[in-house]
Computed example of a mutant assay.
Amino acid sequence: MYPIVKQFHVILVIISIAFFQIRYWRFQVMGKPSQTWLKILPHGIDTLLLLTGLWVAIISGFTPMNSPWLMVKLLALLVYIGFGALAMKKSGGLQFFSYLLASLTVIYMISVAMNKAIWPF
């Protein structure tokens, strides 16, 4: 069961990142009008992503207490959410800077998950 749930989680990570990129570039940079489904669908995907992540952690026995890398990844998730929200709501230089930091935070989270290390570089 673990490989299937983990693979589904990874697929959701890719979809979630793709939606963040599409939404940012489409709405903030190109100025295209918002489409309702592009506002709602990412929340559903991110909810499934969080649930599958929890499921993977339960199956594998990882907890934030016995796996420091998981605690750091969860904290980085909160940072990503914050920067992502700023990137979608603010304008000008702060908007792009927030987008850039959100994107770098995602890269960091992926590296942490793949290497199971707090400083994976």
Rank of each mutant, 00 (worst) to 15 (best):
M71D: 01
P68M: 08
K6P: 00
S16P: 05
D46R: 15
V10R: 03
Q28W: 02
A87R: 03
M109F: 10
F19E: 03
L48V: 03
K89E: 11
R23H: 07
G82C: 01
V5W: 03
P120T: 13
H43M: 10
F96D: 00
N115K: 11
A117S: 12
L51R: 14
G44K: 01
F20M: 09
V106C: 10
V79Y: 15
I17T: 12
K32L: 08
V5F: 04
K116H: 14
M1R: 14
K32V: 04
L12A: 07
A18G: 10
I40V: 09
I59R: 10
Y108V: 05
S111G: 14
L77S: 02
K6T: 01
W55I: 03
S34C: 00
A113G: 07
W37G: 04
L100C: 03
L101E: 13
I15W: 08
W37Q: 08
N66D: 09
L78Q: 00
V79R: 06
I118F: 02
F27Y: 13
L75F: 05
Q95F: 09
M114N: 12
M71Y: 06
F27K: 11
Q35C: 07
I4R: 12
Y99S: 12
L77E: 00
Y24R: 13
F121Q: 12
I4S: 09
I22S: 05
